[in-house]
């Protein structure tokens, strides 16, 4: 059974002057545990909207999303929040770390919404995860005292502390230089593979996209697999967008 299935998903919004804007059209996608999927697209192609649907934070206008065998249309808001907290880890382009909180406190944030052992052992779990991403000596540093690469590694640790089954990375290297971006992606790939989680990377960088086993292109709201010809022109990993 696939972890995440999108069937004929569309997403449109009503425009202020009347009429509708179709952002996503007929999206079909299946993601299995352990998959590494990349989705490339230009700005305005609907990448962020798709991320919202994949991350269970938005509903499609039509079509069906099934997570772990459960059609999401039947899952209530609160249950979906808990499901998202437990099974989905987000990594954002601008890191979105909480200002004023230390790296440790940021990494602990998702564990505040966990129950039982995970909640009570949150500090230890977050410390171990930060050590794993190489930030064992920066636990008490606030985001303003961390470099871009370090901030993104804190964001990765935060996304992974609850052991999610799906990791969603939205432009994970967008705010980093080429070398740091490659290092961060290698780390993300490694920890995702080690945990057996599916990794979906949304990027406009063909080099980063090329690191994924399955590649898709989002163009004017339509998702297509990247064919061999596309692959040939794709830049090597870490290349310029």
């Amino acid at each position: 059974m696939s972890l995440l299935v999108l069937e004929a998903v569309t997403r449109s919004v009503e425009l202020p002057g009347g009429g509708r804007l179709e952002i996503l059209r007929g999206i079909d996608l299946e993601v299995d545990a352990g998959d590494h999927v990349s989705i490339v697209g230009r700005s305005g192609s609907g990448k962020s909207t798709l991320l919202g649907l994949l991350g269970l934070i938005d509903d499609p206008s039509s079509g069906r999303i099934v997570f772990d065998g459960m059609p999401l249309a039947r899952v209530s808001g609160g249950r979906r929040d808990r499901l998202r907290g437990r099974d989905v880890g987000f990594i954002f382009q601008q890191f979105h770390l909480l200002p004023g909180r230390t790296a440790l406190e940021n990494a602990m944030t998702p564990l505040l919404y966990a129950r039982g052992r995970q909640f009570w052992r949150r500090e230890r779990i977050a410390t171990e995860m930060l050590e794993r991403v190489g930030l064992g000596d920066r636990l008490q540093s606030t985001p303003d005292r961390l470099s871009g690469g370090e901030q993104q590694r804190v964001a990765i640790a935060r996304a992974l502390v609850r052991g999610p089954r799906l990791i969603l990375a939205d432009e994970p290297t967008g705010a980093l230089d080429v070398d740091t971006g490659s290092a961060v992606m290698a780390l993300l790939d490694e920890v995702a593979a080690a945990s057996g989680a599916a990794l979906i990377t949304i990027t406009h960088d063909p080099g980063i996209a090329a690191m994924a086993g399955r590649r898709f292109r989002l163009d004017e709201g339509v998702l297509r697999p990247v064919d061999a010809a596309d692959r040939a022109v794709a830049a090597p990993p870490g290349g310029a967008p």
Binding site: D81, G85, F90, T109, Y113
Partner: peptide, 16 residues
Amino acid sequence: VREIGIRRAFGATAPR
């Protein structure tokens, strides 16, 4: 607002 959004993304329910 952004912080609240991040917390919601990481599993905070509306009542929470």
